[in-house]
């Protein structure tokens, strides 16, 4: 079902997992600084699925409506990164990153922009770290706020493109003391996946090759 040229070998999976781990660790470290609280992370999940399935995987995760900060990235490999959490968590997250100094009215006022900035910091640090590990540069768009279900977050429609395969990465995070949870998701399309395979091979060669 998955073409060989994009099917990841075990080591490549390991490598990608580590790279994402590094990126997410950096992102978590930043989030920790912003909310001055413990942030826990899950081990990254990685699947090659259709875009539609990816949207459904996200939709399956939360009952309530979702809010996401979306940043597209482009370079040797391209895709989309999202920081997603339930809309009901939104204000609490804003309260956390603004340091509990603002009135509810002020928080509501700054909500949209504060979410964008938070997503920007988390997704940027994650993507930038990955780019650094793979020794390629990426350009990133400014963050957008998206509200809705999984389909609207991934822009899944009735078109054939929605049935195309993507690499879908997601990591749970939770801010324990704040009762905030969400996840970081990344979607890469097939040409990117093929490119990514090459970069991962290079990465593995750099790591393993010099001491094997």
């Amino acid at each position: 079902m998955i073409p060989d040229d994009i099917a990841l070998q075990e080591l490549e999976r390991d490598a990608l997992t580590e790279i994402v781990n590094i990126g997410v660790s950096r992102a978590a470290s930043n989030l920790r600084k912003m909310v001055a609280d413990q942030v826990i992370l899950s081990v990254p999940s990685m699947e090659v699925v259709t875009k539609r399935r990816a949207a459904r995987l996200i939709a399956e995760r939360e009952v309530s409506d979702l809010i996401a900060v979306r940043q597209d990235f482009a370079g040797t490999f391209s895709g989309r990164a999202l920081l997603i959490f339930p809309q009901s968590n939104s204000l609490e997250l804003v309260r956390a990153v603004t340091g509990d100094e603002m009135s509810p009215a002020e928080i509501a006022d700054i909500e949209h922009e504060a979410l964008a900035e938070t997503g920007n910091i988390i997704l940027n640090s994650c993507l930038a770290t990955m780019a650094n590990m793979l020794q390629r540069s990426l350009t990133m768009t400014v963050p957008h706020i998206v509200r809705g279900d999984g389909s609207s977050l991934f822009e899944v429609g009735d078109d054939a493109a929605s049935d195309g395969l993507v690499l879908f990465l997601y990591i749970d995070f939770a801010i324990r003391q704040r009762d905030i949870r969400g996840y970081i998701a990344m979607v890469m399309d097939l040409p990117s996946l093929a490119a990514l395979k090459l970069l991962l091979a290079e990465f593995i060669e750099r790591i393993v090759g010099n001491a094997a």
Binding site: R26, N30, K33, M34, N120, I121, I122, N124, S125, L127, A128, T129, A131, N132, S137, L138, M140
Partner: peptide
Amino acid sequence: ITANIQDEVIARARAVNAAFVPKPVT
């Protein structure tokens, strides 16, 4: 000031004689 800590971005900052401060700013 940026969370985009790519080596390339840092290098470009240096090129215009600017310092690099990672986000979130502490």
